[in-house]
Computed example of a mutant assay.
Amino acid sequence: MRNPNGYGTVFKLSGNRRKPFVARKTVGFNDKGHPIYEPIGYYAERKDAMMALAAYNLSPYDLVSRKLTFSELYDLFVEQKYTDNDKKISNGYAAAYKACSNIHDIIFSDLRTAQLQKEINNWDKGYASKKNMRILFNFLYKFAMQNDIVDKNYASFIELTLPDEDTEQLHKPFTTEELATLWENAADRSAQYVLIYCYSGLRPTELIRIKTVDVHLDDRYMVGGIKNRTSKNRAIPIAEKIYPFIAAMYNPDNEFLVTDFDGPLSYDRINWRYWKPLMQKLDMDHLPHDGRHTCATLLDNCGANKTVIKKILGHAGLGTTEKVYTHKTIKQLIDTINLI
């Protein structure tokens, strides 16, 4: 039975092929009136090709975009999500893209989990860098699905194995001796950032996103937080030990609490400009998130109330009445954070 005009065709290619049947659509005509074809896909059985052609006609997509390589899709993603919005993609994601050069020229829709997993496994970097690569892959698949380039996110099946040394690294609080060294260097803005993490429980990204209008110096608390419902917009007590740092950073003319000489700080900038140089200077081996683990450990060691610890760290939601940040709630959080 002949297919309707414009429906497309299925035919068998010559030779001994693993997938000899091709489904294709006419996408235009050349100067001589001859049809220009774009393949939908190649299949082992005719019925599979017919099903693919039927699925395409039921929900057409851009066949040309389906032929974008990994590199071409990345460039399009960066342009639309970052460049057009006057933003710069983070150094972590840019490094991840550069590291997976083996798949740059592969058609994005042809990629599968095994190829993506291989790029991550073969990258001679630590857990955090490999996690950035996985995040980038997921971003690209989400972007591709939004534009009907792929139907399935193969990056969602990637597995990250955490080596023993990385496990220890990711959950290693600062020791008592290291905290003493940080206080000895408290005049250094870099050390101040580390101490704020350790005595507030803030995630690194949470600190740089706190707006000045949400800093209540007189009442000794800030409002901020990211990640999930229980962490967002929580009351963050300002411990007496770090109050001078917060007060010195506070400038009502700035949108954000944490700024630098050339504007607001990004996670990458605070990491490369302050964290890493300080760790090297003091001969310490810690990741920025270790400050949060340090706060949790210090609170636990001093016997603080478990529920209050969760409220400070954003691990548990505030009750209906507490969500308005009553004086009783704030005092409870401040008294607890001042135990460390």
Results as ranks from 00 to 15, higher is better:
317 G>C: 08
255 E>G: 03
286 H>W: 12
300 D>A: 15
197 Y>H: 08
317 G>T: 08
255 E>Q: 11
305 N>T: 04
300 D>H: 15
269 R>Y: 01
217 L>H: 00
285 D>L: 15
244 P>E: 11
210 I>G: 02
196 I>E: 07
262 D>K: 15
203 R>E: 02
202 L>E: 01
251 N>K: 02
217 L>P: 03
271 N>F: 13
284 M>T: 06
263 G>E: 05
284 M>H: 02
301 N>S: 14
218 D>Q: 10
219 D>M: 11
259 T>H: 08
308 V>K: 05
277 P>D: 11
216 H>N: 08
295 C>W: 10
293 H>Y: 04
269 R>F: 02
306 K>D: 08
237 P>S: 13
240 E>V: 07
264 P>V: 10
305 N>Y: 00
267 Y>N: 04
228 N>C: 02
258 V>W: 04
295 C>G: 08
304 A>R: 06
233 N>M: 08
215 V>K: 12
308 V>F: 02
299 L>D: 04
214 D>T: 06
254 N>P: 00
313 L>C: 05
255 E>M: 11
296 A>S: 12
268 D>G: 07
243 Y>G: 05
240 E>I: 09
268 D>C: 06
255 E>C: 06
306 K>G: 02
264 P>E: 08
290 D>Q: 14
197 Y>I: 06
309 I>W: 06
220 R>P: 00
311 K>H: 13
317 G>P: 02
256 F>H: 03
259 T>C: 13
220 R>I: 03
268 D>Y: 01
296 A>E: 10
285 D>G: 14
224 G>I: 04
294 T>P: 01
241 K>L: 14
197 Y>L: 14
270 I>K: 13
215 V>Y: 10
222 M>S: 04
270 I>A: 12
244 P>N: 13
242 I>S: 06
215 V>E: 09
307 T>N: 11
313 L>M: 13
293 H>C: 02
269 R>P: 05
296 A>W: 03
289 H>N: 12
205 T>L: 13
201 G>Q: 03
196 I>D: 06
266 S>N: 04
278 L>F: 08
269 R>C: 02
236 I>T: 02
213 V>R: 14
262 D>Y: 10
254 N>M: 07
212 T>W: 03
213 V>G: 11
207 L>Q: 05
303 G>E: 04
229 R>N: 13
295 C>R: 12
244 P>Y: 10
220 R>G: 04
